[in-house]
């Protein structure tokens, strides 16, 4: 492994003055900041591909506080932090610590005092990272809060789309599924519209309500309307526990009306890529053959996840 010093390029940690102490959502980022973030992530990806190991976070303690089950995001952050030379610790912030009477604020303050500089927080309550920044002095990285935001997912999706389509300005992206309960969709809405793309949301009424007032967003209930001529399609994971009374009569009915197939994808622009934040329910929101097809960028999303998380961790610590 080659030890790499901070590169003196125009992007990333080398440039001082990243103005944000925390990353709670992408809504506070300017277009320039998003671009800088994506450029740095691309740089990280290249460094990793070259087997280089930047130690920009040497001496830094990154704590993973996952109060909600997660495998992909936690592992991705862990690899990203370790790849930058940080010490990674798991923070004991089970959902059960709340029932034991210890508040989130108390837990995080304790972590700060033990020397954790950056807390990567995953929490079932929307807005928990905002409470976290008001409760302790560590940097807070939102790794998904309730149904509110998942900023690193949106950034890795943007990087994946930028690789596939080039500039996103003027592009149209369809997001299909349970938008209302999706933190991935919300952060993507902010980021895609900020970058100049327009977004079509598609799903049953209960899953798409409340979004009509968002700028750059249209809501469709017919999948054919949403897919017609779009540049890219993003499918969301259907929460399997949502059955009757939860927005759709049945998963079978959902699949019939909103499930993505290769035939339906033919309505989109030729070659339009398909994204999915994973894990997929094949046979529900998309077919197995579509997930395995050349349109599918699901694998790239996972790879870009590590690079994007390396980028944001180093930007916050800069």
């Amino acid at each position: 492994m080659v030890q790499t010093a901070i590169p003196s390029t125009t992007s990333g940690a080398a440039t001082p003055g990243w103005p944000h102490r925390h990353l709670l959502d992408v809504d506070v980022l300017t277009v320039d900041e998003v671009v800088r973030c994506l450029d740095l992530a691309a740089e990280m990806r290249a460094l990793r591909a070259a087997g280089e190991r930047p130690d920009w976070l040497a001496g830094e303690v990154v704590g993973l506080a996952f109060a909600e089950p997660s495998t992909r995001t936690r592992v991705s952050f862990e690899i990203a932090a370790a790849a930058l030379g940080a010490q990674v610790v798991e923070l004991p912030i089970e959902a059960s610590s709340v029932t034991k009477g210890e508040s989130l604020a108390d837990t995080l303050r304790t972590m700060e005092l033990t020397g954790v500089g950056t807390i990567v927080l995953r929490h079932a309550s929307s807005g928990a990272p905002y409470l976290a920044t008001r409760s302790c002095g560590s940097r807070i990285m939102n790794a998904g809060d309730g149904t509110h935001a998942h900023p690193t997912q949106a950034l890795l999706d943007a990087l994946t789309l930028r690789d596939a389509l080039g500039e996103l300005s003027g592009r149209t992206v369809a997001i299909v599924g349970d938008i209302g309960h999706s933190r991935v969709a919300r952060s993507n809405l902010h980021l895609l519209t900020a970058l100049g793309a327009s977004v079509r949301l598609c799903g049953p009424p209960d899953w798409t309500g409340g979004f009509r007032t968002w700028r750059g967003v249209s809501v469709h209930h017919r999948l054919e309307d949403a897919l017609d001529g779009v540049d890219a399609v993003m499918a969301l994971r259907v929460q399997l526990e949502r059955r009757a009374g939860g927005g759709v009569p049945s998963l079978r009915e959902y699949g019939r009306r909103w499930g993505l197939t290769e035939d339906r994808m033919a309505l989109a622009r030729p070659g339009a890529p398909l994204l999915h934040p994973g894990p997929t329910n094949e046979g529900v929101e998309l077919t197995a053959s579509l997930a395995a097809s050349s349109r599918s960028l699901i694998g790239s999303q996972v790879e870009n996840g590590v690079a994007v998380r390396m980028a944001v961790l180093s930007l916050l610590a800069a």
């Binding site: 929307s126 509110h148 409340g210």
Partner: peptide
């Protein structure tokens, strides 16, 4: 329910 609750994911 409304645009704000949707915005906040609550």
């Amino acid at each position: 329910s409304g645009a704000i609750a949707t915005r906040l994911g609550l």
